[in-house]
Nucleic acid binder design. Structure first.
Lengths: 333, 333
DNA sequence: CTGTTAGCGCCTTCAC
DNA sequence: GTGAAGGCGCTAACAG
């Protein structure tokens, strides 16, 4: 890593001159053309890149909070906008500026992130979409910076999330209360922690109410996954209602069912957990009933808690829970 | 802004001790319980927040690129995941780590962002979704850091984008080649720069081919906007085909049309610019024909160009263009 | 026109 | 158990 000093040496000029030239202040200080060229040539040769930390240290006065948001780099990527939306709300309500750094990570490999481990680069971190292995890593490790975990259970860190068991239960109770007795489920392969929880609780609640699960399908967690599994589902006699792990899968199914000439909800009702896109669910054919997980709120309040911890206003881990909300639309009346 | 020194003074201990305590090294250095408490109390009282820049300066060895991504804080928020996806690809291909800082801004007010103006906090910036006023600001201002602009035209900065005129033309030519002569358009109110360009070129291409625009509607740029405008459109006799400014609007229309018992494409064909969600467009009822704008590629190559500029490998502004792609699906056959 | 110098706030030996 | 001192890379007076 070349520094200004290296350039100065190579170009045969002083430290300051290099700084001036490289920061575009040649004019005001009337640095000669020749010197400028020497400096640029040296900088280019050494592949010089400014050290931002040093620059900031000198320059900045106001206190930026620098927050890392860890986000699993898989298909869940597509709803990161919900988190950013939520965090923006929190930031707008604050007086101090916040830098949000997006850090994609691979599930089960949060432990490989050195930035998080040495806690030297950020004021705090928000962890989203953690796998069980990631959670274990968080449990057994001590970090130098405050951490907030979204939609997972731990007593070591502050958390913001929903009770996923309640959410699954809410879905099941809705179907049961409508008198459905013949239910098929479409679950994701390798469900993430939160999904696993609502799956379990959905099935258990059905069982408690003597409500039979006619059939269980496994699908990829995506719109296309739902489209593909639909061909399996439509082969057999349809149940009264199908419960989907996520709105994405349900949307793929709806498309296929329509193409196959099925009428929703007359031929079969559809209910899904609302994970990805609340707006989209309102405008499928027909509009999709969901149990919505309020990810925006998780992010908004997660950021607030995190800043509170950084400021040391908040000393103990604290846990915020928002309820999942049943949105009844025509797919499941 | 309190510093370690302030805490030391207030707590009546030394500088080093404070640093030790605050970084969790009390054990290894066996700092007395009492001292620790004094330090914590002082830190809390002074609302002490670490200066990350100073910490990094001391600690870090490897060179992080710190990149700001300016992103309009309106409903376009929802497709930021496409950009992050693209940038992640670029980062994965690089050896050096990159910190992506998401900076939402309000269109026309990019000029108010002091971070960008004084160029002291980032190595470089990617500007996305700029309005005309934002572009003018960029044109007339000199920045200390390299900047890459996405999907806009300027010779001052490197750009990555599509030729939006060609994209609009592509849409029009497709309809014309299919023999449609009776076309209705649904455009957004206050279109953004790129949309404005494809609108103009769509209309002009139609005109050149003596193809009449039967009717022009204005809609909000959202799924719900498309749903609402549908009630206007469906009141009157339907044209052969409707062209939508964005896939979002078209999706709202499709939902309403289905509910009204219309058959797409028999009663009316539908074509849209593919801006938001390529996957969603494949699974509407019926699947939506689009002219897709490859935003992932813009971000991926935009980041590459930016890093090239920062490293001074790339000295002149350079312009990359990716073609919009016609995706023919059943909504417009 | 160019160079010297004093810190920015923090961490880390090393000495007490 | 605690403190003094040097220096990370850079900027901005202030000298020449």
């Amino acid at each position: 890593m070349a520094t200004l000093k290296d350039i100065a040496k190579l170009a045969g000029v002083s430290y300051t001159t290099v700084s001036l030239v490289l920061n575009g202040k040649s004019k005001e200080r009337s640095i000669s053309q020749q010197t400028q060229e020497k400096v640029f040539a040296a900088a280019q040769q050494l592949q010089y890149v400014t050290n931002i930390a040093a620059k900031r240290l000198k320059t900045t006065k106001s206190n930026h909070y620098t927050i890392a948001v860890y986000w699993p780099a898989d298909y869940r990527m597509s709803f990161i906008s919900r988190l950013i939306d939520g965090m923006k709300k929190a930031i707008d309500e604050m007086s101090d500026p916040v830098d949000i750094i997006i850090r994609p990570y691979k599930n089960d490999f949060l432990c490989d992130d050195t930035e998080l481990a040495d806690g030297t680069s950020y004021h705090g971190a928000i962890i989203s979409g953690a796998s069980n292995a990631d959670m274990e890593y968080l449990e057994r490790t001590t970090f130098a910076i405050p951490i907030v975990v979204l939609n997972r259970t731990t007593s070591k860190y502050s958390t913001v999330g929903t009770n996923n068991y309640n959410a699954g239960r809410l879905a099941a109770l809705h179907l049961i209360s409508r008198g459905y007795t013949d239910i098929t489920t479409v679950f994701t392969q390798n469900p993430f922690t939160a999904m696993h929880e609502h799956q379990i609780s959905f099935l258990q609640t059905c069982q408690e109410h003597n409500c039979s699960i006619k059939n269980q399908f496994i699908s990829k967690n995506s719109i296309s996954g739902g489209f593909e599994i639909a061909s399996e589902i439509l082969k057999e006699p349809l149940p009264q209602v199908i419960f989907f792990d996520t709105d994405a899968i349900a949307r793929g199914f709806l498309c296929a069912a329509n193409m196959a000439g099925k009428n929703i909800p007359k031929d079969v009702s559809v209910l899904a957990m609302g994970v990805y896109s609340p707006e989209s669910s309102s405008y499928t054919v027909p509009p999709l009933s969901t149990v919505d997980i309020p990810h925006e709120l998780f992010a908004q309040y997660g950021l607030k808690l995190l800043i509170g911890s950084i400021k040391k206003e908040l000393v103990q881990p604290c846990h915020l829970t928002f309820d999942a909300e049943l949105k009844t639309r025509s797919s499941c009346q």
